[in-house]
Design a protein around this nucleic acid. Structure first.
Lengths: 204, 204
DNA sequence: GTTTTAACAATGCAGCTGCACTGTAAACGG
DNA sequence: CCGTTTACAGTGCAGCTGCATTGTTAAAAC
């Protein structure tokens, strides 16, 4: 072997370039040569680390998922040991919203992949797991708040979880499309939390 | 002139073919020749009615918007003269969800265009108008229900409208991705209406 | 010190892309 | 009857696509 190289590092380098291209020009602008140019490497090198374009796309999708997961866990752990469910959800869902440039770039890539996987169902399995995990987590938080008397008892935790997650996704889509500014999205998120936890919930 | 032809009809024919291609294989599979083959016409004819591909894409986007608008107005007018706000919104938002094959196909195209316009902001102006119109309409319905005592008074109509529309959009995205079945989406929509109008609103 | 092998780089190729261009047939105005 | 105009069909072309192939270099294994 020559200079042994960290494969993961190179693949991440390429995937980052891919995401930059996708965030700026869309997924259909992603080609081996474009990505290679963006990464500042030769097209041959890209082919060396990804045997096919599909393999590269799949890896990039997994990176997007890891970004989101890292964001969620970072936001959650930053709140300390036993945060109030409402504050936890507000932080978590707010973190997933494309409210600044880096999250907006990630969001555009994620949206592109959403459209991508909607047409290639075989690739979408991992996304389903993420959604299911988030739903279970959110529902658990709502249930915990109900048990503590900090949420309305006439809401179904599972349906509320679906509603909360879908609301966040929809807000993200509209934000990415520039349909309304971030403040509106945050206000809608808080209003939704008010509806579930009551207007007097901890952390308005 | 030879046989005078209805331009709009031909353009619609081509746009329909484009949407079929986009719904099945994504927007990146849309090419002059693919669309022409799907429409059963020559590639030269497509070029005759659309001078550039961008012009064709823009027209197809407008067709998607018209589809949605037609669906909304049809659903609304079918409810008669003075429907209850909650029933109206339930019908309208339910109609916009990709719950069956034709709406799913339209939804996939719409999602593809969402990702498309997120990267080409210049094309998105018309979509903003649609969103603004829907938001104003929904907020008006919530306000009317409040005035009639048929909705909670502690909800802000504008925020509720944003929440309702974003919820619907998010549910649509998750449905298209196959993240959960239609029944879950409808349950979440009804639960959300319960939160805004109270569990005893007309038409459960 | 030789052989093997990983890490690239470069080239080539068939196929597709949007688009310009040319050709042809037909209906209308004169 | 004729020229203009519209509605197509067909061809050609430069450029890009993914991918296979073929180098070339250099570090590791023996």
């Amino acid at each position: 072997m020559p200079k042994r190289v960290d494969h993961r590092e190179r693949r991440s380098l390429i995937a980052d370039a891919l995401m930059r291209v996708a965030a700026e020009h869309g997924l259909e602008a992603v080609s081996l040569r474009h990505v290679a140019a963006e990464a500042g490497v030769s097209a041959g090198m890209v082919q060396h680390y990804f045997r096919t374009k599909d393999e590269m796309m799949a890896f990039a999708l997994s990176v997007v998922r890891e970004h989101n997961e890292a964001r969620v866990t970072a936001a959650v752990t930053a709140l300390g040991a036993t945060p109030a469910p409402r504050a936890l959800l507000r932080t978590m869902l707010g973190e997933l919203l494309p409210l600044d440039a880096p999250r907006s770039a990630d969001g555009r890539v994620a949206l592109a992949f959403l459209a991508y996987t909607a047409v290639r169902p075989a690739v979408a399995a991992a996304l389903h797991q993420d959604t299911a995990g988030l739903l279970a987590f959110i529902a658990g938080q709502v249930r915990a708040a109900q048990a503590a008397g900090a949420a309305r008892h006439d809401v179904d935790p599972d349906r509320a979880a679906v509603g909360l997650l879908a609301l966040m996704e929809g807000l993200g889509v509209y934000l990415l499309g520039g349909h309304f500014p971030p403040a509106i999205a945050l206000a809608a998120l808080d209003a939704q939390l008010d509806l579930i936890f009551g207007p007097d919930g901890p952390v308005g």
